[in-house]
Amino acid sequence: MSQTTPALELKNLSVAYGAIRALNDLNLTVDKGEIVTLIGANGAGKSTTLRAISRIVNPSQGQILIDGQDVTRQPPDAIVRMGIAHVPEGRRVLARQTVEDNLFLGAYVRNDNKAAIQGDIHKQYERFPRLRERRTQLAGTLSGGEQQMLAIARALMSRPRILLLDEPSLGLAPLIVREIFSIIRELNREGVTILLVEQNAQLALQTASRGYVLEAGDCTISGPASELARDERVRKAYLG
């Protein structure tokens, strides 16, 4: 174990929706520069974990630490300001605004000048040339893959240190999935720490260095991705 403070740490985190417990006592760390994945079936609590980190759901118990600092009671905008960006499940682009305005709003928390933000928008266009072609189009008219690219590009506009990705492969053609995942790896090489939630466990474990398996709100197994990929229980349940 490294001695440095983890970029993100969850301590005994629990979330309940009314009487239903969605997440029980999760302990998780993500070190700086890592890709960590959360895998598990539908409803296992993966998205809930990300939503709790972004503070759009309230934990019923436990702590969320960013760089060792307790942010459990901070509002969602403070979390973004601390360098966490969340690419939500189902992309959730702002369908009634243009591609460029979506990117512009991704930089909402930044106070630097317009030129710097414009510069970053152009960087995103270089990374995702298809977004440049569609810059004046309403985001709702994009294809699923393009929307996923826009959701990632929009998240990057806040210049995050940690990226939370929720099911980036959902509903996309295999070719597009490969493209998206190569971009995820590229971002990680550029220094972005990544917490990846994915139903496609095989792909997730190929991409991540470590993983956690959630089952009905409980973390049952965790460890290096290569070990999880060989684990008999994981193979049976998620890798087919």
Partner: peptide
């Protein structure tokens, strides 16, 4: 304007707006 775009974002999808850091 920025605030207007943020208003439209909240009108369209309040949760996603929160994720972008819009209070």
């Amino acid at each position: 304007t920025k605030v207007g775009k943020a208003m439209r974002a909240v009108a369209e999808d309040a949760t996603t707006s929160s994720l972008l850091g819009i209070s």
